[in-house]
Design a binder for these strands. Sequence first.
DNA 1: TGCAACGTTGGA
DNA 2: TCCAACGTTGCA
Length: 592
Amino acid sequence: MSGSKALGGGTGGGARRRRTRCRRCQACMRTECGECHFCKDMKKFGGPGRMKQSCLLRQCTAPVLPHTAVCFACGEAGKEDTVDSEDEKFSLSLMECTICNEIIHPSCLKMGKAEGIINDEIPNCWECPKCHKEGKTSKVRRGPVTGPQGDFMSDIAQVRAPRSHHREKLERFKRMCMLERRPESSSSSSSSSESDSESDSDDSLRGDQAGGGSSPSSSSPAPPPPVVYGNSSGGRAERERSRSDPPAVPSPPRPIQMERHLVRPPPACPEPSCLPLDSGSSHIMTRDVWLRVFTHLSQRELCVCMRVCRTWSRWCCDKRLWTQIDLSRQRSITPPMLSGIIRRQPVSLNLGYTNISKKQLMWLINRLQGLLELNVSGCPWPAVSALCQAICPCLKLLDLSRVEDLKDSHLRELLAPPPDTRTAHGETRVGRFQNMTELRLAGLDLSDASSRLLVRYVPHLTRLDLSHCANVTDQTVHTLSSHISPLRESLTHINLAGCVKVTEQCVPLLRRCTSLQTVDLRSCSLLSSETGQLLSFPSHASSTSTSTSTSSSTTSATTTVAASSCSTSAASSSSSSSSSCPPEDRTLLKNS
DNA sequence: TGCAACGTTGGA
DNA sequence: TCCAACGTTGCA
C-alpha cells in the first residue's frame, strides 16, 4: 500500500507503519452511527463500499502502533510490559518519530532520550532526539520541552508536505504563529525544562473566556470528528494534523481551519502527584494540596496558573476545577477552545449566543458524555441540529431558548429517539433526552403540537420554560397536565410568561399537575391582573410551599400558602371538576 | 482545497 | 481469508 512506502526521504527514517485502532477509547467502543457519510457508503448500510472509511463517530482518538511494529535498531517489539517503573516502561516502549518515522526503543538510541519531544496525545509518538537535534523541528515551540505533550501543531510545520496545498497550509500556519505568538508564551518557556507545553488549549480557552483576543481561526470553525495520527509524512495524517488544533501544547493561535482534533479527556488525577523542582527534589506541597488551593481561584486565574509550568498546567486542567464552562456570547468558538472544553470535561457548558457550527457542536457533544447541562440558546438551528445526531443520556438540562428558526418539526427531530432505538414496529417511547429534567424553550415559534413531543419524549421534566412562545395556548397546558402525561406528576416549575394566547382556563388545568410549585404567568395579556402573576403553588410533596422564583423574576411574586389548601385530591380530579378554582386556591393567586 | 476512490495493511 | 479502514492520489 502506498501508506507503507518509505517516506522518510532525506530525513532518514524508516518505513511508515500504519497505525491501528486502540480498541479501548470511547470512539472505538461505540457502534457505527449508520448515518454519517462513511457509514452510508458501507455495504452493511446499503452503500457501495468504495470509500472504505471508518464511521465518523468511531474514529479512534488514540491510534496505536500495530503489534507487528518492531524497533528499528534491535528488531524487537515493545517491551514496556516487562517492567514496572514509568521510566523503564518508556525506555522499552516503541516510539515512532513523527519526522523520520523511525520506530525505536528510546533505550536503543545512542543519544539521550531526554532530548526527544514526546507527543502525549498519541501513543508511542515523539520527535526522536536525532531529528530534534538535527534541527528538524521547526518550531513554534517556545523552548526545549522534554516532557510529554510536544507541540502537535508545530510538528506540522516540520513535516514534509508532499502536496503543494499542504505546504501552503503549513506555511500559512507558520506565518500566523510567528505573527501571533504571545509574548508571555516565549518567556514562560525559554528557561526551564518545565516549560509549559500543555497550556495551549488552555490558552485558547483562556483567551476566549477571559475575553482575550480570539484566534484568527475563529472564523473557520467546524471540526469534524477527531483522528490525528502521529505519522507525519503527508497524506491524511498530515492533513488531519494540519487541521487539528494542538490538543495539548503551547498555543499559537490557530490560523487555519483545523477540523480534526485529537483530544484526550483529562485523567482522573493528573500526573505527577507532586511538583518537581529544578533542584531535582519535589515541592513540599503535594498535588492534592495544590488542587485544594486551585479550587479557590477563578477560571481566569487558573488560566494564568497554567502558564507557570507544565505540572501546573496539567493540574489546573483538572476537571474538578472546571465543572462549569461559560462561553456564551463569545463571538467565535475556535478549535482550540473546543479542545480546551474537552480537556476539562465540564458538567455544565454554556454556548449560548455563539456562532458554534454544527460540526463543532457534534464534535463536542460526542466527547462530553458526562455533560449534564447544555445551553445553546440563541444559536442558529442548523448548528443546534447537531444534537439530533447525538445521544446524551446524562443530559439533565437543555436550554434551547431563542434558537433561531427552531420549529415544531425540529423539536420532534431533536427529541425523538435515534433510529437505532426504534423497534421494528415503530418508535420507542425512549427519547434522545429521556432523562432530561429541565428544558428551556423560551421565545421559540412552537405550537401546541410540541407539547405532545414533550409528553412523549421527555417524561421526567420537572422544569419547563415556554415563556414568550407566542403560539402556545391552553391546549399545551392541557396536554402537559392530561391524565396520560407523565409530566403531570413530574413538573414542578413551568414558565408561561409572555405566552399571549394563554387564557384563564390554564390555571385549573395547571392544578392537575400534582407537584407543581411555581407557574409564571406574567405578561400573559389574556389573563387578568390577578392571575397573570408568578404563582406559587403549594407543593403536594412537602408541607410548606416554597416561593421559588425563576431566574426571570424581577419582583417578589410568590405567596406562601398552607399546604392543605390544595389537597392531592385536586390532582385526581377531572379537568372539568377542577376547572373551577376553589376559593382557597384563590389565595394562591395573590398579586405579587 | 476538499472529497471520492482505492491499494494495501493489519487484525480476527 | 475476510473485513475494516489507513493513508495516498487524482479530480473537480
